Deep mutational scan, measured.
Amino acid sequence: MSIQHFRVALIPFFAAFCLPVFAHPETLVKVKDAEDQLGARVGYIELDLNSGKILESFRPEERFPMMSTFKVLLCGAVLSRVDAGQEQLGRRIHYSQNDLVEYSPVTEKHLTDGMTVRELCSAAITMSDNTAANLLLTTIGGPKELTAFLHNMGDHVTRLDRWEPELNEAIPNDERDTTMPAAMATTLRKLLTGELLTLASRQQLIDWMEADKVAGPLLRSALPAGWFIADKSGASERGSRGIIAALGPDGKPSRIVVIYTTGSQATMDERNRQIAEIGASLIKHW
């Protein structure tokens, strides 16, 4: 067993022997300050990975656009099909120029040879490739089937209704393509630590998230040396920005953090900075 597999395998073990964890309200002060700075709603939740206990939250049951954070859930659904023998990570999918949508930095380079399901999930999570996400959605039956998968997991909140890039419209009070911080955190925890996926698939999912290449300005920018993070960011219209992450010190994840914001007129750089500052406060008061 590799060191990485050993780390994931021990998560349920540590759950039975973990020391108590305590929240620090200073982080919530920073979350509220971020709302003021951005002139927008901010949703935040911090969940103990082992016990599932909510350590701190702000607007945990308000809806926010999922943006590209849905791609982790999508690849979780794909992996569940792999575990059930209904899909193969090595299966090659061919597509055409007509399938390409905006922001497809990986898939646009493989029009001649296609990409495997594994490569598409990697592109969707690590590079947030939109065409990769659409091709993967097709393999499971579309957005409604992803919503059904989540319902079967016990998540009756999170929903995907449209494809890339339309799902990023982020219209106020529109429940399409939205989640709540509490629902997303719970669902992510189930995918990473529960029995829904095999150990190999849980490890694959967290490996893809750990290799995320487009979330550098967010929580990763505040991460001390030696800390672990596996994450997925998202951005969409109407000043929306978000990130879902499993992180912790000593090279292993111990908490789930979900941050969403929407309705801001601030620049992308400012939205990134506010999320990074929330992360810095979280780490300082860990």
Score class of each variant (00 low, 15 high):
Met1Arg: 00
Ser2Ala: 12
Ile3Asn: 15
Ile3Met: 08
Gln4Val: 12
His5Pro: 05
Phe6Ser: 11
Arg7Ala: 13
Arg7Trp: 11
Val8Gly: 11
Val8Ser: 15
Pro12Met: 14
Pro12Asn: 13
Pro12Tyr: 13
Phe13Ser: 12
Phe13Gly: 07
Phe13Met: 14
Phe13Ala: 13
Phe13His: 07
Phe14Leu: 09
Ala16Gln: 15
Leu19Phe: 15
Leu19Gln: 15
Pro20Lys: 15
Val21Ala: 14
Phe22Val: 08
His24Arg: 06
His24Tyr: 03
His24Cys: 05
His24Gln: 06
His24Ser: 11
Pro25Cys: 07
Pro25Arg: 07
Glu26Gly: 10
Thr27Arg: 00
Leu28Met: 12
Val29Leu: 13
Lys30Gly: 01
Val31Cys: 12
Val31Arg: 00
Asp33Gly: 12
Asp36Leu: 03
Gly39Thr: 06
Gly43Glu: 00
Tyr44Leu: 06
Tyr44Thr: 00
Tyr44Met: 06
Tyr44Val: 03
Ile45Ser: 04
Glu46Asp: 01
Leu47Gln: 05
Leu47Thr: 08
Asp48Ile: 04
Asp48Ala: 05
Asn50Gly: 14
Ser51Ala: 07
Glu56Lys: 05
Glu56Leu: 03
Ser57Thr: 09
Ser57Asn: 05
Ser57Ala: 14
Ser57Leu: 04
Ser57Trp: 10
Arg59Gln: 02
Arg59Thr: 05
Pro60Asp: 15
Pro60Val: 09
Glu61Leu: 15
Glu61Lys: 14
Arg63Lys: 07
Arg63Val: 03
Pro65Glu: 04
Met66Gly: 02
Met66Trp: 00
Thr69Ser: 02
Thr69Ala: 00
Phe70Cys: 05
Phe70Ile: 03
Phe70Gly: 03
Phe70Tyr: 04
Val72Leu: 01
Leu73Pro: 10
Leu73Met: 08
Leu74Pro: 00
Leu74Gly: 00
Cys75Ser: 04
Gly76Ala: 12
Ala77Glu: 07
Ala77Thr: 07
Leu79Ser: 01
Ser80Trp: 12
Arg81Asp: 03
Gly85Cys: 08
Gly85Met: 09
Gln86Val: 14
Glu87Val: 06
Glu87Cys: 04
Glu87Leu: 08
Gln88Gly: 11
Gly90Lys: 12
Arg91Gln: 04
Arg91Gly: 02
Arg92Pro: 08
His94Tyr: 00
His94Cys: 06
His94Val: 14
Tyr95His: 02
Ser96Thr: 13
Gln97Gly: 14
Gln97Arg: 13
Gln97Val: 15
Asn98Lys: 15
Asn98Arg: 13
Asp99Glu: 12
Asp99Pro: 02
Leu100Ala: 02
Glu102Gly: 05
Glu102Val: 14
Tyr103Gln: 07
Pro105Gln: 02
Pro105Gly: 02
Thr107Ala: 11
Thr107Gly: 03
Lys109Trp: 10
Lys109Thr: 08
His110Gly: 07
Leu111Pro: 08
Leu111Val: 14
Leu111Arg: 06
Thr112Pro: 11
Thr112Gly: 15
Thr112Val: 13
Gly114Ser: 02
Thr116Ile: 03
Val117Ile: 10
Glu119Asn: 07
Glu119Gly: 10
Leu120Gly: 00
Ser122Gly: 13
Ala123Thr: 02
Ala123Ser: 09
Ile125Gly: 00
Met127Asn: 07
Met127Ser: 07
Asp129His: 00
Asn130Thr: 05
Asn130Gln: 02
Thr131Ser: 13
Thr131Gly: 08
Ala133Arg: 11
Ala133Thr: 10
Ala133Ser: 09
Asn134Ser: 01
Asn134Arg: 01
Leu135Glu: 03
Leu135Ile: 08
Leu137Cys: 02
Thr139Ser: 15
Pro143Gln: 01
Pro143Arg: 01
Lys144Arg: 14
Glu145Asp: 08
Leu146Arg: 02
Leu146Pro: 00
Leu146Ile: 05
Thr147Cys: 06
Thr147Gly: 04
Thr147Asn: 04
Ala148Cys: 11
Ala148Ser: 15
Leu150Trp: 01
His151Gly: 13
Asn152Lys: 13
Asn152Ser: 14
Met153Asn: 09
Met153Ser: 10
Met153Val: 08
Gly154Trp: 12
Gly154His: 04
Asp155Asn: 09
His156Gly: 09
His156Glu: 14
Val157Ala: 14
Val157Gly: 06
Arg159Glu: 02
Trp163Asp: 05
Trp163Cys: 08
Glu164Arg: 00
Pro165Lys: 03
Glu166Pro: 02
Glu166Lys: 08
Leu167Ala: 04
Leu167Glu: 02
Leu167Gly: 02
Asn168Ser: 07
Glu169Lys: 10
Ala170Asp: 14
Ala170Ser: 08
Ile171Ser: 15
Ile171Val: 13
Pro172Arg: 08
Pro172Ser: 09
Pro172Gln: 07
Asn173Gly: 15
Asn173Trp: 14
Asp174Met: 03
Asp174Val: 02
Glu175His: 11
Arg176Ser: 07
Arg176His: 02
Asp177Glu: 03
Asp177Cys: 01
Thr178Trp: 00
Thr178Asn: 01
Thr179Gln: 00
Thr179Arg: 00
Pro181Leu: 03
Ala182Val: 12
Met184Val: 04
Met184Leu: 04
Ala185Thr: 08
Ala185Val: 02
Thr186Pro: 04
Thr186Gly: 12
Thr186Asn: 13
Thr187Ala: 04
Leu188Arg: 00
Arg189Thr: 07
Lys190Asp: 11
Lys190Arg: 11
Lys190Asn: 11
Leu191Val: 05
Leu192Glu: 00
Gly194Asp: 10
Gly194Ser: 13
Glu195Arg: 09
Leu196Arg: 13
Leu197Ile: 06
Leu197Ser: 01
Thr198Ser: 13
Leu199Arg: 15
Ala200Pro: 13
Ser201Ile: 09
Arg202Cys: 09
Arg202Glu: 07
Gln204Ile: 14
Ile206Leu: 14
Ile206Val: 10
Asp207Arg: 13
Trp208Met: 03
Trp208Ser: 00
Glu210Ser: 09
Ala211Gln: 03
Asp212Arg: 01
Lys213Tyr: 07
Val214Arg: 05
Val214Asp: 03
Val214Lys: 07
Ala215Gly: 08
Leu218Val: 02
Leu219Ser: 01
Leu219Pro: 01
Leu219Met: 03
Arg220Asn: 01
Ser221Val: 08
Ala222His: 10
Ala222Pro: 05
Leu223Val: 13
Ala225Arg: 13
Gly226Ala: 04
Gly226Pro: 01
Trp227Met: 01
Phe228Cys: 02
Phe228Arg: 02
Ile229Leu: 04
Ile229Cys: 05
Ala230Cys: 06
Lys232Arg: 02
Gly234Val: 00
Ser236Arg: 15
Ser236Cys: 04
Glu237Gly: 12
Glu237Met: 15
Glu237Pro: 15
Glu237Trp: 08
Arg238Met: 12
Arg238Pro: 14
Arg238Thr: 14
Gly239Met: 03
Ser240Ile: 13
Gly242Glu: 00
Gly242Gln: 00
Gly242Arg: 00
Ile244Asp: 00
Ala246Ile: 12
Ala246Arg: 00
Leu247Ser: 06
Leu247Pro: 05
Pro249Asn: 03
Pro249Thr: 02
Asp250Lys: 10
Asp250His: 10
Asp250Ala: 09
Lys252Ala: 13
Lys252Gln: 12
Pro253Ala: 15
Pro253Gln: 04
Ser254Met: 13
Ser254Gln: 12
Ser254Gly: 11
Ile256Val: 10
Ile256Ser: 00
Val257Leu: 05
Tyr260Ser: 00
Tyr260His: 00
Ser264Ala: 08
Gln265Ala: 14
Gln265His: 14
Ala266Asp: 04
Ala266Gln: 10
Thr267Leu: 06
Thr267Phe: 02
Thr267Arg: 09
Thr267Tyr: 04
Met268Ser: 05
Met268His: 05
Met268Glu: 09
Asp269Gly: 10
Glu270Val: 14
Ala276Val: 09
Glu277Leu: 11
Glu277Arg: 07
Glu277Ser: 07
Glu277Val: 08
Gly279Val: 04
Ala280Val: 12
Ser281Leu: 10
Ser281Ala: 15
Ile283Val: 15
Ile283Leu: 05
Ile283Asn: 00
Lys284Ser: 12
His285Val: 03
His285Arg: 06
